[in-house]
């Protein structure tokens, strides 16, 4: 995985996600950080990304809108989007998966959760 875009309005959350990604063996990837969905969308449009990780509850553009934009774009539709949120429940998770999210994780996250969620992508690359 070469480029991972992380959209979260919290610098602490972005740092935690980067730290977890490094721990699970993705330290060599380039991490591009965005403070909201609009910035995140700009980053994935500017340069190809292998993964977009997004919070749900963000100012300017929230994670659900970001996911909708990505899945509506022919160029970005195949980009895996992992949602990491503090406001998740089963109903919301089902809705996001239906919208095309690759996965949905609830905060607080840890490396094991992230590793399990990303295993299909990482294993696919290895193979």
């Amino acid at each position: 995985m070469k480029r991972i875009v992380i959209a979260d309005d919290s610098g602490t959350a972005r740092m935690m996600i980067c730290r977890c990604l490094e721990i699970i063996g993705l330290a060599d990837a380039e991490f591009a950080e965005a403070e909201n969905g609009k910035e995140g969308l700009k980053l994935v449009k500017q340069e190809p990304a292998d993964l977009l990780i997004s919070d749900l509850n963000m100012p300017v553009m929230d994670g659900e809108s970001l996911l909708r934009w990505v899945k509506a774009s022919p160029k970005l539709v195949d980009l895996p989007v992992l949602i990491i949120t503090s406001a998740g429940n089963q109903a919301k998770t089902d809705k996001l998966l239906e919208m095309g999210a690759f996965g949905v994780l609830n905060k607080p996250i840890n490396p094991a959760m992230l590793s399990e969620a990303l295993a299909p992508l990482i294993n696919n690359e290895d193979g």
């Binding site: 309005d9 610098g11 602490t12 503090s86 406001a87 998740g88 089963q90 609830n106 905060k107 607080p108």
Partner: peptide, 29 residues
């Protein structure tokens, strides 16, 4: 930012554990 993220995570978990799984909830910034 650290303080805000701790509360954001805490509030989400709090609502998740007190509400039934199918119940939706919304948090402010």
């Amino acid at each position: 930012d650290l303080l805000a993220e701790i509360l954001n995570t805490l509030a989400g978990r709090f609502m998740t554990v007190i509400l039934p799984p199918e119940s939706d909830f919304s948090l402010s910034i």
